[in-house]
Simulated assay, not measured.
Amino acid sequence: MNLGNFRFKYIRPKMTDRTKAGISREAAIGETGQVIRQPGQGSRGMVRFTTPLLGAEEWPFICDTTVGVGDRVSVVDISGNTLVVRKR
C-alpha cells in the first residue's frame, strides 16, 4: 500500500481548556479554595475551588488546624487523593 499521496494536517481546537485539569502537583500548591464540609473525627473535610483543580472542583482535605465551613484554605501538599491545606 502506497501512502505517498496522502497528506495529514494537524488541527488544534480553537477553544482553550480553562480548567486546571492538566496541571502538575507543583502548580496546584498555593491554590485557594473554600471549606464546604468541616473535617470531623475520622473523616476528611471537603474544599471547593472556583476553577477545577486537577480535574475536580471539590476535593477531600486534611488540615493541622481547626477550620470551619466558609473558611479559605490554601493547598500546601497533596497526599494521594487528599489535599493537605492550611487556613489563610
Rank of each mutant, 00 (worst) to 15 (best):
R44L: 14
G40M: 06
K87G: 01
T82H: 02
N81G: 12
L3Y: 10
K14C: 03
S74L: 07
K20Y: 09
K9R: 08
L54G: 04
V35F: 00
V47M: 00
I23V: 12
A21R: 13
A28T: 12
S43H: 13
R44E: 11
V75A: 05
A21W: 06
M46N: 04
A27Q: 10
T50D: 15
M15F: 08
P52Y: 03
V73G: 01
T32N: 05
T19M: 05
D71Q: 07
A21C: 09
T50W: 04
V85I: 09
G80W: 04
E57Q: 11
D64Q: 13
G4D: 15
E57Y: 08
G4P: 00
E31P: 00
M1K: 06
R48Q: 15
R48S: 14
R7T: 13
S74D: 12
D71K: 06
R86D: 12
L3E: 09
Q34I: 14
F61T: 00
S43W: 10
K9M: 07
T66W: 04
L83C: 05
W59N: 00
R88C: 04
L3A: 12
W59R: 02
M1P: 02
R72T: 08
Q34A: 12
V84D: 00
W59Q: 02
E57R: 10
R88S: 09
A56M: 13
S24H: 03
A56F: 11
G68W: 06
W59H: 10
I62M: 10
L83R: 03
V76I: 15
A27E: 14
A56D: 07
G70A: 07
N5Q: 12
K9Y: 09
I23L: 10
Y10W: 05
P52S: 11
D77S: 15
V73E: 06
M15P: 00
Y10E: 10
F49C: 05
S79H: 06
T65E: 15
R86N: 09
T66G: 05
R37H: 08
I11S: 06
L83A: 03
R18V: 14
L3H: 12
G30S: 03
P13N: 09
P52C: 04
T16D: 11
D71S: 09
T50H: 09
Q41A: 07
T16W: 07
G22Y: 10
V35P: 01
S43C: 07
G80P: 02
G40Q: 08
K87I: 11
R44P: 00
G33E: 01
P13Q: 10
G4I: 04
G68A: 13
V76E: 14
G40N: 05
Y10R: 15
V67A: 01
T66D: 13
T66I: 08
L3R: 05
T32C: 14
Q38I: 05
A27S: 14
G68L: 09
E31S: 13
G30Y: 04
R48L: 10
T65R: 08
V35M: 01
Q41S: 06
P60M: 04
E57K: 15
R18S: 11
R72Q: 14
P52E: 11
K9V: 10
M15K: 13
F49W: 06
V85A: 03
K20R: 15
S43L: 10
T66L: 12
D77F: 04
R7A: 10
